[in-house]
Design a protein around this nucleic acid. Structure first.
Lengths: 233, 233
DNA sequence: ACCTGAACACCGTTCAAGT
DNA sequence: ACCTGAACACCGTTCAAGT
């Protein structure tokens, strides 16, 4: 679909400039945007190449291989999360913001964000953020180990709920038209065995509509933060 | 690798029986076992076929396509989670067990379990469990909506921590030999830019060794359960 | 009813060759 | 320095044909 001519016009954002050479950054953000729109399965070295006005093989000059491309996308996603605590925030407020920022990434990139949970996790953007929040925690009396545990706790929650919110609603992101309620029910039911009892179908429908994951997330992040405390041992 | 002859011997567990025809169940569990050992990228319709002593194309008689195969694997993973509350358990204990069972699946299937978070979420095994635990919550005074929220909360946590625990340790699951500490450091560092400051490298190393995700998980599930309460509105 | 062979339209990746 | 063309070894999937 949408192959056609190699798109000689102007690849992405240049108004006129013929073709400034590619670089890693441009390749990565084009990849993120392309996957957002065409799905992860649609993201292909060849197709991404033509999107950028180039043969797919040229991309190997800027990323080692497709794995590196996907890991690079994950870095870009993390870059959307607040890089550190606001200057006047207490540690609970800061961690809440951190988790919330992470959670929101899943809402903005419903198709791509799950890569955060499946690809290589420890990248430079992650480390910068861990470092910044850890610094605040240490100032508040957490030792390093407890600080890392606390950060892990809120990150686990952000990722977990982010994913769950997507999976409940899932998987009809591709099309432009928002589907009708009836269409949603049929889509969900279709993947189930034919003889599934009615109460379970009802449950499936409720899950995909009534469950307020945003509120769930807020509740549980508050509960978690209440359960954490500074100090060693 | 390991292609060779079509493995006429005996596919998986039969001691003698020539070749009882395949069925969906056998295909799915073979797929899970194969992916556990050879990675998700290694799981190929053709390779899974030869593993089962059959051409890859024959599998399409038993699963619609590869997507259906992966969704089926997710069902198998959920089937390892306790199907309902123990008869004498209070609701908090029951939900803790539920979340814990889910969390442990990620430990048993480090390569495959992330499919839980990326594939179609609402399947028959999920619904059965939601139904069973919801029933208990209703008996304890939760209304349906609050009950679903509570279940969503613990599931989000189980999935989130399960994934995080994997991602911290990640991604050297393939080989038989457990890697040395030094190997681990080098592997982690390799994906980072060359000029990354030392404190961040130190952080990366600590993350992959010192962080006690099991304890993190226990703490935060307790905090969460303490923050939940029965009742409507 | 279940499986096979051959074919189609794609992949990721390599490498010598172009400019 | 950056990109292209052609090639290789694989994919998922289809379908007529076999037993």
């Amino acid at each position: 679909m949408a192959i056609g001519k190699p798109a000689q016009q102007a690849p992405a954002g240049e108004p006129t400039g013929r073709r400034q050479p590619l670089n890693r950054q441009r390749v990565l953000s084009a990849a993120l945007a392309y996957a957002d729109r065409h799905g992860l399965a649609g993201l292909t070295m060849r197709r991404l190449g033509t999107e950028l006005g180039v043969e797919g093989m040229s991309l190997y000059k800027h990323v080692a291989d497709k794995d590196a491309l996907l890991d690079g996308i994950v870095e870009l996603l993390w870059a959307e999360v607040p890089a550190g605590p606001a200057p006047d925030a207490g540690w609970r407020q800061a961690l809440r913001n951190f988790a919330d920022g992470l959670y929101r990434v899943f809402g903005r990139h419903p198709i791509v964000a799950p890569l955060i949970a499946t690809r290589n996790f420890v990248n430079i953007e992650v480390l910068r953020r861990y470092q910044a929040y850890l610094e605040l925690l240490r100032q508040t009396g957490f030792d390093r180990r407890r600080g890392l545990d606390a950060i892990g706790a809120v990150v686990g929650q952000g990722v977990g709920y982010g994913l769950l919110a997507l999976r409940y609603t899932d998987p009809a992101p591709q099309t432009a038209e928002p589907e009708s309620n009836l269409q949603r029910i049929r889509r969900i039911t279709r993947t189930l065995p034919a003889d599934v009892p009615d109460p379970l179908v009802e449950l499936a429908v409720d899950l995909t509509s009534e469950c307020d994951t945003d509120r769930c997330f807020a509740i549980s992040i508050d509960a978690l933060l209440a359960g954490l405390a500074p100090g060693p041992a």
